[in-house]
């Protein structure tokens, strides 16, 4: 601390990710109200405000907020329908829930002083595992043991099919890992980089460059926030297709 004070730098890029109890105390039990709770609640409120208050007039000619709500609805609905086919549309509410939670958590995380819930592996791992387990269970329920046929590539020569099956199985189990780490990693890295660069703003010489760099990075992070929500959702749809569309790949 004293060393930092003497150099004038106080860069703690990881501080923003610390989970803290909201009402004092050191102990974090599973039920403790923390900054995680607060920012997730804010995300819920924002989603409710947009999708419930925004559409409360049910206007034929939509207001701005209703337009945004309809746009989000149409965007995800089309995605689910195009990727998973007609059979997958009944899982649209689940996909929409995931998409809205990730999108609004990412965007709220870009507010100064905020806490980014989706930058935590704990959160993204649960999201990815929900998709992984959901898709796997659904696949077995819908296709029975035939779901395993997905790993047996019948279009390949018989000799290399076992090898391909091994690769397919490994890639199947890697899915939740890549699915979750991609989201958390992107957000954590972006936010940490912004913090590190912003820390250099105390240097008078560097500050104009720092301000420009932080502005540019902020724009980039806005893009990342939306794109990562989109990527997570479309991958969910792609995985869902395996279960719904049967083992014909």
């Amino acid at each position: 601390m004293s060393e930092e004070a003497s150099t004038g730098f106080a860069i703690h890029p990881m501080d923003q990710f610390v989970v803290k109890p909201l009402f004092g105390g050191d102990h974090i039990a599973w039920y403790t109200v923390t900054n995680v709770t607060m920012w997730m609640a804010i995300a819920v409120l924002v989603i409710a405000a947009l999708l419930m208050l925004g559409t409360r007039r049910r206007a034929i000619v939509p207001s701005r907020s209703q337009s945004v709500a309809e746009l989000l609805y149409g965007f995800i609905h089309n995605m689910v329908e195009e990727v998973t086919g007609h059979e997958g549309v009944k899982y649209f509410p689940y996909v929409m829930t995931l998409f809205l939670f990730i999108l609004f958590s990412n965007l709220l995380g870009l507010l100064p002083m905020s806490f980014t819930t989706t930058s935590h592996v704990a959160v993204t791992v649960v999201l990815a595992l929900m998709v992984f387990l959901g898709v796997t269970i659904l696949g077995f329920v819908k296709n029975g043991i035939g779901f395993l046929g997905m790993f047996w590539v019948t279009s390949a020569p018989l000799a290399i099919r076992p090898i391909l099956a091994l690769i397919e199985i490994i890639s199947y189990f890697v899915r939740p890992v890549s699915h979750s780490i991609r989201l958390a990693g992107n957000l954590m890295a972006g936010h940490a980089v912004i913090k590190v660069i912003a820390g250099f703003a105390t240097l008078v010489v560097a500050s104009p460059v720092v301000i420009g760099a932080v502005t540019a990075l902020y724009g980039l992070e806005m893009l990342v926030a939306v794109v990562q929500a989109y990527v997570f959702t479309i991958l969910t749809c792609v995985y869902l297709r395996d279960a719904v569309g049967g083992a014909h790949h």
Binding site: V19, V36, L51, M52, F92, M96
Partner: peptide
Amino acid sequence: TWPNQIFWLLVTLVAIYFILTRVALPRI
């Protein structure tokens, strides 16, 4: 901090799911 985060995440997802299926999606 994982149990805490996971608990509140599940609460949040259930809340969003109910907002969507009970009100928002049918309305839109």
